[in-house]
């Protein structure tokens, strides 16, 4: 028995060695901070003392209008950007994947540039375009004889502009993933669809959308987490303004953690809330998939 266990251990040793570093790093840099963040969210450390305050930091968040606006804005980002990415990802990929290779590669490369260029660079480019004092917007306004409009300062519409900007920054990744998935679909299925008289719409409905479901799940999970954490675009374009109208949970977390009115306990509570909301959204997606499978 003992010899068998030892043999098994020897056999699995290489696997443990491969997994080991990841487990250690994951525990150190992901699991521990999550755990620590939760603990911190129950304390107030602002006045040179660590005082247990229970759920007070969470109450502070839920009783603060700015925090509630930030939660609403973050959810709005997720609720709009993620579906847009999935819809346009499938649409663009479905429209190009069966075209000539050079064309497909060209479109993918163009759309992927914003992903490679990093959010900081892309945000600065957008600032150059939209700045009402020295940007392209001003140039065109002057060309048309209009007064310069600061499109980044509208309390109602600026957030929708940011949603569009975030969409343009992430769509390339979705198109690359969907196109790769669609290229792996057997040609027989596509041919069968055509022979049966199916049009482009039928191909989307009966072949492309169902067969790229795994990519959709992956995109949903990764983009939900990514969009929920949106920070750089906000920081570089609006700094959460005007008057907090584009402030997100991540931006507010940063403000609580490193801003003028520091409160690490509230920042940690905000982090925990972000974690919980992301988890709920992703879990809901899995529940939906399971129900769908059970119904089939």
């Amino acid at each position: 028995m003992k010899a068998m266990t030892e043999r098994k251990l020897r056999e699995n040793l290489s696997a443990y060695l491969f997994v080991g570093p990841f487990v250690v790093l994951c525990a150190l840099f992901i699991i521990y901070p999550i755990f620590r963040g939760f603990i911190n969210s129950l304390y107030n450390t602002k006045w040179r003392a660590t005082v247990y305050v229970g759920l007070q930091n969470y109450k502070t968040i839920f009783s603060n209008a700015t925090s509630m606006l930030a939660i609403k804005n973050s959810l709005l980002f997720v609720a709009t950007v993620v579906p847009l990415l999935i819809i346009f990802g499938i649409w663009i990929s479905g429209s190009i994947f069966d075209k000539r290779r050079l064309y497909v590669s060209g479109v993918r490369a163009v759309l992927y540039i914003p992903v490679i260029a990093s959010m900081v660079v892309m945000s600065i480019i957008w600032r150059f375009i939209l700045d009402s004092q020295s940007g392209l917007v001003r140039y065109f306004c002057m060309l048309l004889g209009l007064k310069p409009v600061n499109v980044l300062a509208d309390p109602t519409y600026t957030i929708y502009l940011l949603i569009f900007i975030l969409f343009t920054m992430n769509i390339g990744q979705c198109v690359v993933l969907y196109t790769a998935d669609m290229l792996s679909i057997p040609n027989d299925l596509l041919e069968a669809c055509r022979i049966d008289g199916g049009g482009r719409l039928d191909m989307f409905r009966y072949i492309l959308i169902p067969l790229t479901k795994n990519t959709t799940i992956f995109t949903f999970i990764t983009q939900t987490a990514s969009v929920f954490k949106v920070f750089i675009v906000i920081q570089l374009l609006t700094r959460g303004g005007p008057n907090y109208k584009t402030t997100t949970m991540m931006y507010l977390l940063y403000e609580y953690a490193f801003g003028n009115n520091i409160n690490t306990g509230v920042a940690s509570a905000m982090g925990v809330l972000m974690f919980v909301i992301s988890l709920v959204l992703i879990t809901l997606r899995f529940v939906f998939i399971r129900r769908e499978k059970e119904a089939m």
Partner: peptide
């Protein structure tokens, strides 16, 4: 932290 959002609110007409 609260001054510039106030100025923004006034400037934007919010």
């Amino acid at each position: 932290s609260h001054l510039f959002p106030a100025i923004q609110a006034a400037y934007s007409g919010d």
